[in-house]
Design a protein around this nucleic acid. Sequence first.
DNA 1: GTGTTTATCGTCAGGCAGACGACTATGATC
DNA 2: GATCATAGTCGTCTGCCTGACGATAAACAC
Lengths: 252, 252
Amino acid sequence: MPYDPSAFPPFAVTVDLVVLTVRRHALCALAVRRGEAPFQGRWALPGGFVRADEDLAQAAARELAEETGLRVHDPAAPAQDNGAHLEQLATYGDPKRDPRMRVVSVAHLALAPDLPAPRAGGDASNARWAPVEELLQQGGHGRDGEPVAPLAFDHAQILADGVERARSKIEYSSLATAFCPPEFTVGELRRVYEAVWGVALDPRNFHRKVTGTPGFLVPTGGTTTRQGGRPAQLFRAGGATLLNPPMLRPEV
Amino acid sequence: MPYDPSAFPPFAVTVDLVVLTVRRHALCALAVRRGEAPFQGRWALPGGFVRADEDLAQAAARELAEETGLRVHDPAAPAQDNGAHLEQLATYGDPKRDPRMRVVSVAHLALAPDLPAPRAGGDASNARWAPVEELLQQGGHGRDGEPVAPLAFDHAQILADGVERARSKIEYSSLATAFCPPEFTVGELRRVYEAVWGVALDPRNFHRKVTGTPGFLVPTGGTTTRQGGRPAQLFRAGGATLLNPPMLRPEV
DNA sequence: GTGTTTATCGTCAGGCAGACGACTATGATC
DNA sequence: GATCATAGTCGTCTGCCTGACGATAAACAC
């Protein structure tokens, strides 16, 4: 590769975030309203430019903190700090994906427990948690009957890829605990799986599976009745990050 | 985000390729020798700059064709053309990964059947198939006792990630057939799994699994004795791309 | 108390995988 | 040609896991 300047055209590099959480039994993603052209007024995924001295993961963590206040789990110490899970998702670089210039976006996937309220630079009206189903439907109508505009840029594709990643990854990893508070019950974890997969799971078989997998759940000794009904044991996520054998999604 | 020019520093964007194949019972990757600084003379993964009007996947396919002559499978028609499988792997953007400038590399993973011989711009001495084990060992010695220098840049990490992707993906998909010629036997497919995972599999259980999964293998009617022994049925890859339930790697 | 809700334990049948025996069909060797 | 080595293919058995579902337990609402 000679040093032909025309050989490496300049690119802008951004990170976009698919931030998922489970609210009211639904898988939701963080969306921000665009304040400027193109796609002004439309919903988009949060994101921003990678700075000159920043690694991609750093940039994603910074954007996540700016948008949600969340810090990122230290993978080395996956203890029960209230941090989020963050991983690289995929990179999108279609020459026409941004009409202004050539932008390559390194999308990241973040999973967070249910959060109080979004903040986008302090302006709450410009950020919201929306059910992914609503964000992904093309030209449909939201819960309130209002027509829904598709996400800006190629963000619908990015969101769909992130959702699929989350759906498949909780099959064989303990990632679903990233949607839960530090201490949680088996039932709460089950409702996470149900919301992410959009299916109903048998509580008895689910309980057997997750409590029977060594290292997956660690009882804290406490109990809670915050879900109503009989008090449930509280657990923390154990050290096991891989679920073997996996918990497969029920067939359609 | 205002249009602050300092907000989007210019990046160079490249694609790097992890091209894997199975040769002589070993998982091998394509390596090219660097002709210029930095890391002059060291082995590296093939790759190059993304052109101004090119999508990332296009750039990866172009590089793959330049280095190996392989064309890429059309995912829409995964028939038995001799194309390779190509998918995006991950993106590497550490600010210091290239000492010359800020380079973000979108790594891709390609899987190919055993090929005649590599060509790197026509110069065979500058490209080779090397066992991944050899490329990844740090400061060790190759088969011939010659000391092995680690791969240039962060390519050892990229290669390791690509190998891990391949190892895990053949568990639950029909991807292993991408290492096989258009028609292959169950035994040849088993040897692919054995080479990629580095384990021995029971021929009888493997045969039962792959022939019992609907849509995975389609008999062509022919047989071959190219492996010696009793003639084996020839198969093509069926339409099924997902293997459910998966074929799990044996525990260590 | 009665009903409702959720959690948790048990049981049972079917499916699948690991371990392995047995047989088949070719080429190589004596 | 008999024997051997090699590889492929079909079965069997056992144990584990899962899906389906009954039963019991412990809270709250009335």
